[in-house]
């Protein structure tokens, strides 16, 4: 059984008199411990799909099965409980965390919701999660607005890991970071995947990142998946128009 099975996912937005398909009959699966990349040009519907899959917005049609559970059929309280299995990291680290909260609180919140740990146990879990994302545990008492973008993205990853999810959706999670920080975060994500066997739904427009991170890739254009395949094959020999265009536009791809 796949970890995540999405089928027929559809979402349209009204723009003036016309309907824009941000997701058009989208279907795909993700296996445990796998990384599926989703690439596509700006406005192709990547963030919409990320938010549909994580049930942050309501689809017009389609089903989302996580570990066999239909996420669209759950009552609100059951869905909240299920959310511990499925986490998301957003693109903009400056917007994704409550600026008034402390680092410790941000990471502790999912522990409060999804575990029965005591206060003391939660504190030590927060410290070990901070260490896991290579941050100083002393950072726990600092407010979010005082730390850098790269640090915030590590905190966001630590928060996503706190409830021991089986799948993390990364919506351009490294795009807003500068190049050296980006490479560090990618390595961190790789290491975490080896250690925890978490699966990633890795959204990006950077084919170099796809090649380095993903097992398989789906190419998105105008809300439709136009091509899927092994990451190495799609990057070296794209079949779809948009895939070819993305490869042509990519800066030199790193070999790996």
């Amino acid at each position: 059984m796949p970890l995540l099975a999405v089928s027929g996912l559809t979402k349209r937005y009204r723009r003036g008199d016309t309907l824009v398909s941000a997701a058009d009959d989208v279907s795909f699966t993700i296996e445990p411990a796998e990384t599926l990349a989703l690439v596509g040009p700006s406005g192709s519907g990547k963030s919409t799909i990320a938010r549909l899959v994580t049930r942050l917005i309501e689809p017009d049609a389609g089903t989302i099965l996580l570990e066999g559970t239909n996420l669209r059929a759950l009552k609100p309280s059951a869905l909240r409980a299920m959310r511990g299995r499925l986490q998301i990291v957003f693109q903009d680290p400056l917007a994704a965390l409550n600026p008034r909260a402390t680092v410790g609180r941000v990471i502790e919140d999912p522990l409060k919701i999804h575990t029965r740990f005591s206060r003391g146990e939660r504190r030590s879990r927060v410290a070990s999660l901070l260490e896991r994302v290579r941050l100083d545990p002393a950072l726990a008492s600092r407010p979010i607005h005082e730390i850098s973008g790269g640090q915030r993205q590590r905190v966001a990853i630590a928060r996503a890991l706190a409830s021991s999810p089986t799948l993390i959706v990364l919506d351009e999670a490294v795009s807003a970071l500068d190049v050296s920080v980006r490479a560090e975060i990618l390595q961190l994500l790789k290491r975490i995947q080896r250690e925890t066997r978490v699966a990633y739904f890795f959204i990006t427009h950077d084919l170099g990142v796809v090649r380095a991170m993903a097992d398989r890739v789906a190419v998105l254009d105008g809300g439709r998946i136009v091509e899927t395949g092994l990451a190495s094959e799609v990057v070296s020999n794209p079949q779809s128009e948009i895939g070819k265009a993305l490869v042509a536009a990519a800066p030199r791809l790193p070999r790996s």
Binding site: R51, T54, L56, L79, R80, A81, M82, R83, G84, Q87, I88, F90, D92, A95, A96, L97, N98, P99, D109, P110, I113, H114, A156, R159, S163
Partner: peptide, 14 residues
């Protein structure tokens, strides 16, 4: 509409 509110929903906060 901010991301951190979506983020709070995503971790299952009431």
């Amino acid at each position: 509409e901010r991301d951190y509110v979506a983020g709070a929903r995503a971790i299952g906060m009431h």
